[in-house]
């Protein structure tokens, strides 16, 4: 556990020493506040509902998460610091979990930034707190599974850009899983359950649906385990 914390501490520190994450945060805040302005201010009458801007926020995650996860493992390979991590007493599982924990920390920060909008909304009327917090939980769960996918993409290559693109493509596949197959009903019955944004709708309605939560958690676990396997495999090359 100490080693996991050591690694996630280091990762968090690196997040805020590298310009990339500032850039990602800046883009995220800029775009989401622009969307908030369009949705909330120019579209009259204003609706006091967090879900109004939720869709935009989720879409921004699709772009920001690959940028935030791309360096997690790639950079270690490129710098040769994987030799430090893999020859240390820490197991690959600990290394990957440490990194994943750090990425969850960053996700939390993104969420906190986003809470500014409901705070502004609440000045103009009553906000339904249940749906707000359940939506936030939903976004966190979804973001967590997306971070795991990004982490996995990062372990595939030592080039950050390749990792970012791979992460984006993977996320896009999960994102569009529902709409891509909407033409064919039998196919969509199989594919749609894997759609990332569809699973969040229950939570935003204020319903905690077990399968939805399990879907996000197991997706995160799956990709964390895959990352561990990909890195462990390098020892056998």
């Amino acid at each position: 556990m100490n080693r996991i914390l050591a690694i996630s501490g280091k990762e968090l520190r690196l997040y805020f020493l590298a310009p990339t994450s500032y850039f990602a945060f800046a883009i995220y805040i800029l775009m989401s506040s622009f969307m908030f302005y369009v949705d909330f201010v120019t579209y009259q009458p204003s609706i006091i509902d967090y879900r109004l801007i939720l869709g935009d926020m989720l879409f921004m995650l699709l772009i920001v998460i690959p940028v935030l996860t791309m360096r997690l493992v790639s950079e270690e390979f490129r710098q040769g610091t994987d030799e430090l991590l893999l020859t240390s007493p820490a197991s690959v599982t600990e290394v990957v979990l440490g990194k994943y924990l750090a990425s969850l920390g960053v996700l939390m920060m993104l969420l906190v930034c986003n809470l500014a909008y409901p705070a502004v909304m609440s000045l103009f009327g009553n906000l339904n707190m249940t749906t707000l917090w359940l939506s936030v939980l939903g976004v966190f769960l979804m973001g967590a599974s997306m971070m795991a996918i990004g982490l996995f993409a990062s372990s595939l290559s030592q080039h950050q850009m390749v990792s970012a693109v791979a992460g984006f493509v993977l996320l896009l596949l999960f994102w569009l899983a529902g709409s891509m197959t909407s033409q064919n009903e039998t196919l969509s019955a199989w594919i749609e359950p894997f759609s990332l944004p569809d699973r969040i709708s229950n939570l935003t309605k204020g319903v905690i649906n077990g399968p939805d939560v399990i879907f996000y958690v197991s997706l995160a676990v799956l990709f964390v385990v895959l990352s561990i396997q990909v890195i462990e495999r390098k020892r056998w090359r």
Partner: peptide
């Protein structure tokens, strides 16, 4: 061969 350092730390 190359010291495993994190340039940002």
């Amino acid at each position: 061969e190359t010291p495993p350092l994190y340039p940002d730390l």
